[in-house]
């Protein structure tokens, strides 16, 4: 319930009229949105119980490793609710397969559709979504870890919350099933990072400073 309360309201995409190239325009709008989502994510992370008790080095490491996974949980959740085959980055930024292909995000589209299908089949609840997002961050396998015991306690607290929630619903296999989706989330996030780095390096798509700093940390 604490995570549900601290979940930020979804952002809307800002329009961009700096270019006539429609594919480039979509990418500029998307990168601007992701940059603002990152800002929110960092503020949100500080409110996860146990996060602020970690050393600053570990807070940075977890965010640098797990930020894209946490953001994609949100995209997958919004897309799952939308029903169609579009990726819902924001209420006013839904990209279909053709748009993703035209913008160089075909690989990301395919990976995210797989993840969305999996979440949709599981009929995730809002409680599960926010816990999964926090767990993706806590479980980001940052290396090296400054204080392994604190990070472990942070993970244990979230795991316990998930188990308590699922046992209150009398779903004994549910926590395990959710944890088993984390490898696909990791794999999807890696493909997303590669796609944005490729767009920046090879197609010179300008990327905001914070987003670029976080992509560089993954490169």
């Amino acid at each position: 319930s604490h995570l549900l309360l601290t979940e930020p309201a979804p952002l809307a995409a800002n329009q961009d009229d700096s270019t006539n190239d429609s594919s480039l325009r979509i990418l500029l709008i998307l990168c601007d949105l992701l940059n603002r989502e990152l800002l929110l994510l960092i503020g949100w992370a500080k409110q996860i119980p146990g996060f602020s008790g970690l050393s600053l080095v570990d807070q940075m490491s977890l965010l640098q490793s797990g930020w894209m996974e946490a953001l994609l949980v949100g995209v997958a959740w919004r897309s799952q609710g939308a029903g169609g085959d579009e990726l819902v980055f924001a209420g006013n930024l839904c990209l279909d397969e053709a748009q993703c292909r035209a913008t160089g995000l075909a690989d990301l589209y395919e990976a995210l559709r797989h993840l969305i299908a999996k979440y949709r089949a599981m009929k995730l609840s809002p409680e599960e979504v926010v816990t999964l997002k926090a767990m993706a961050l806590a479980n980001s396998d940052a290396d090296p870890v400054d204080c392994p015991d604190s990070v472990q306690r942070f993970q244990d607290g979230l795991h316990e919350a998930l188990q308590d929630y699922e046992s209150s619903r009398r779903e004994q296999h549910r926590a395990g099933r959710l944890l088993m989706t984390l490898p696909l989330l990791r794999q999807t996030a890696d493909r997303a990072v590669q796609a944005f780095l490729r767009l920046h390096r090879h197609r010179h798509v300008p990327i905001h400073k914070l987003l670029l700093e976080m992509l560089d940390a993954k490169a």
């Binding site: 800002l39 960092i42 503020g43 500080k46 600053l56 807070q59 940075m60 965010l63 640098q64 400073k209 914070l210 700093e213 976080m214 560089d216 940390a217």
Partner: peptide, 14 residues
């Protein structure tokens, strides 16, 4: 932290 100064600053802001 020099390479990741925006993240560092955001985490230190209360």
């Amino acid at each position: 932290t020099e390479r990741h100064k925006i993240l560092h600053r955001l985490l230190q802001d209360s």
